[in-house]
Design a binder for these strands. Sequence first.
DNA 1: CTGTTAGCGCGTTCAA
DNA 2: TTGAACGCGCTAACAG
Lengths: 363, 363
Amino acid sequence: MPTTAADGSAPGPGGPTPRPAGPVTLQQVADLAGVSPATASRALHGSTGSRVVGEQLREKVLAAARELRYVSNAPAQALARSTTSLVGVVVHDVADPYFAAISAGAMGVAREHGLLVMLAATFRSPELELDYLARLRAQRARAVILSGSGFADRSYTSRLAAEVESYRADGGHVVTIGPHGIDTDSVNPANRAGAALAVRHLHGLGHRRFGVVSGPRSLTGVRDRLDGARRQLRSLDIALPPANIVDGGFARDEARGATRALFSRAPDVTAVVVLNDVMAAGVLAALRDDLGLRVPEQVSVVGFDDLPFAADLHPALTTVRLPLTEIGAQAMEMILTGPTIAPRAVAVDGELVVRGSTAHVRR
Amino acid sequence: MPTTAADGSAPGPGGPTPRPAGPVTLQQVADLAGVSPATASRALHGSTGSRVVGEQLREKVLAAARELRYVSNAPAQALARSTTSLVGVVVHDVADPYFAAISAGAMGVAREHGLLVMLAATFRSPELELDYLARLRAQRARAVILSGSGFADRSYTSRLAAEVESYRADGGHVVTIGPHGIDTDSVNPANRAGAALAVRHLHGLGHRRFGVVSGPRSLTGVRDRLDGARRQLRSLDIALPPANIVDGGFARDEARGATRALFSRAPDVTAVVVLNDVMAAGVLAALRDDLGLRVPEQVSVVGFDDLPFAADLHPALTTVRLPLTEIGAQAMEMILTGPTIAPRAVAVDGELVVRGSTAHVRR
DNA sequence: CTGTTAGCGCGTTCAA
DNA sequence: TTGAACGCGCTAACAG
């Protein structure tokens, strides 16, 4: 047994294991081990059908594979097995801590189960989301997590439904986070209830004049949060004039500008509900640096999500916590379980975290 | 031409386009269009070799594909072409804004060029990094970006080198961010110079007693930053006793604890250099809430990275800005260029951003 | 337990 | 321009 080291160098005429150009194939491993490709395959990936390979051959094959630094050709494997270990995760924006947390949760679970994650960022474009879904389908990804909130647009929804249907027909599995208007497994954060929680907290502190810094209403997640706040206010008999709702565009700096607009239109507002923490950072900056209003003495602010930096804002942000990592993990777990007869819907509660940005009304 | 809608429902005996179970194949598209698979392939993916397909047939094929909602089988395509449009991005932790920003930059460029990104998180385990690299190689990923800083460990480095070498032999391309002890293309943030910048800034404000909140020294990025700070201090003739360097473990809360330890050992420190912004948040919290020391009046703090939340900390954090998104984008661009004869090294400068956490020494 | 054979779906020769 | 035939690397069925 000529077990000389595979050095990958000049394949001299008599040299051992002349690691050929390009990737090493199973055939080469089999040759080196003196067995058939089938046996090599079984020894390396031991499928269920054909029972164990003899201890000795097994060792030989493994040794050969190691020597050649063999790794299987995943596309070829996928073709032969017609299944992969790829899972797609579609987010709006990786740089957004909200999605970063969800992704982290999903990836943690994926890792534990040997799944590879393809992450796609749509930058909030419905078009791109559809496009990525098709590409993930082409890759024969086992499943896809749609983690961005859906778009409230009829044409989009029906195209999404069609795409999802095709994917399913191919054996794919889709899990959404939040409502997407399609009939899939889903993990649903309590957007409405969470916003209601924020409102009740402020109301309990005596606040009666509210403002809302919203995001783009085209997103279902935003709509739900806004709706939750609205309903709660209505049931408390508190008015929320349209002028008191501004669009912070989901970004810190845009929210900062929106806050200035809000207070120029409704200077008497004492409580601001912000539909996510990123924008809340902008709101606090506007209040403090642009408007000279003190939080929480003059204005109380509540955020949403409880992103990692919330506690470090000034003042520390009172917010509605969503267990984002867990949400991502749960979505991935639904994938491991595989699709069921009827779509499952997991509800995830939010929880109010009271910190320094809210206080009893004083004016 | 029976152009009835493909509704994917019950394939009635006389029904049109009885979308068969499982994924639609090119053969089926070809059949529906009444052409050979070869022609269908050319019409859909038009390779360079075989010139254009007749306008009419082309249309027919495209219509058939649309009707069947065909997407090509990427693994099969990969096998036949022996190349993919997959790129791997390996990070330590997606939830860390540092990596989130780098990933976002890389993914933006990838999207512009039709590349799909597989994101792998190693949670700072060298073992997992090696494992993911192998899996990415198995997937025939076109290239891999190693974005986490390297591990200062001989055994690891040599195993990494071997893995990278194999990957290269397979035609793969590796780009690292920061030094990894291997001979690849790389994008190198100015870790040393950046840390020196921080020190000079503090020195300029009159500070003479320094503390450093470091990360795990096993990471080359940490070592470089620490080294940069040390050298600058030495050249300024300022002592940095080992007791004044604490390990903040790269996490906010750990850094908070480490800061308490630092000040119990060296209460006279007036300037703290923190090796990243996440830890700086913890340092500020410790100073303010645990130690009752005022920043910047009693203690000045400088961070590193300029993550998005840095300006929202209290006080706003003076820090060394690294253009993280751009770094990620540049790494991806090196991939687009393809490997060159000699490895390229792009240096990326840091820039001091002065905010509220530093001031002239007063005690 | 092991080897042989036959595809998986596609791109790409080569002829026509 | 189009079609027929082959092979990419691997797994699965069937023999032995």
